[in-house]
Simulated scan of single mutants.
Amino acid sequence: MSESTEEEKAAAALAVLVDQLSAASRRSRQDAAHDIESIARVSPERLTPHVGKLIEALGRPEAQTRWEVLSALSEMVQVDANAVADAFEGAESSLFDEGSATVRLAAFRFLARLGATGARMSDEAWPLLDEAVQCYHGDPEYRDMLACLLDFAHGELSEATSHALAARVGFDAENGRGYIRSFSEQIAAALAR
């Protein structure tokens, strides 16, 4: 069998999998999202033709579908940030999901990665990230949010966003304890570079 035939079969199988994100069955949607997230970790570029359907899946009622799709979209940022930028609104809604810390964290990670791709995107993402940092300070997912903020701080931020982030972590860098202080110090140091 030729290589192009194998590629065509793989592309067709992926299209069927992505279509399962809109299946009537919650379980089918969750299984599909799980498989898509696994693909994104290895080959995020394969999902670029399906970005519209991934973004649509951010409106599904079950948390698992949303967090796994957000995770896939986060991986795709590295390949084509412009292609996934339309997921911003769905990620914003997920960032303040009252029922799932995992969804909130996945949305935070996506917005931080997208925001790190350039000055304009950093200015769009920062107000949401800032609000989330204030809302979830000390919550179980907060440590992971700080890790995402550290990655964000290493990105291509605007001067205004860089200053605002430095101001946000300044108090904890000087007065915080444990991981909060450690991450805050690292973020401040990254911004000072």
Results as ranks from 00 to 15, higher is better:
M1R: 11
S2C: 02
S2P: 12
S2F: 08
S4R: 10
K9E: 12
K9R: 15
K9A: 15
A10K: 11
A15W: 03
V16G: 12
V16I: 02
D19M: 04
L21G: 06
S25T: 06
R26G: 00
R26V: 14
R27S: 10
R27N: 05
R29A: 04
R29C: 04
Q30M: 14
D31T: 09
D31E: 10
D31V: 05
A33D: 04
A33H: 03
E37F: 12
A40V: 06
R41W: 15
V42T: 13
R46L: 13
L47T: 03
L47G: 07
T48Y: 08
I55G: 00
E56S: 11
L58N: 04
R60I: 07
E62L: 05
W67H: 15
E75Y: 13
M76H: 05
V79W: 05
D80A: 06
N82P: 12
V84S: 07
V84G: 01
V84Y: 04
A87N: 00
E89N: 14
A91T: 02
S94N: 14
F96C: 01
E98W: 08
G99Y: 05
A101W: 06
A107L: 01
F108R: 08
F108G: 01
R109D: 06
R109G: 01
F110N: 06
L111N: 03
A116L: 01
A116I: 07
T117L: 07
G118S: 02
A119H: 14
A119T: 14
A119D: 13
E124S: 10
A125Q: 01
A125S: 08
A125G: 06
W126M: 03
L129G: 04
L129S: 01
E131T: 15
Q134R: 12
G138Y: 09
D139T: 14
P140D: 05
E141I: 08
E141C: 02
D144T: 00
D144Q: 08
L146C: 03
C148A: 14
L149T: 04
L150R: 09
D151T: 10
F152L: 03
A153P: 13
G155R: 05
G155M: 03
E156H: 13
E159R: 12
A160E: 14
T161N: 06
A164E: 12
A164L: 08
L165Y: 02
V169L: 07
G170V: 03
F171S: 13
F171V: 11
A173L: 09
E174N: 11
R177A: 13
Y179N: 08
Y179K: 08
I180P: 03
R181A: 10
R181Q: 15
I187M: 09
I187E: 05
A188V: 03
A189C: 06
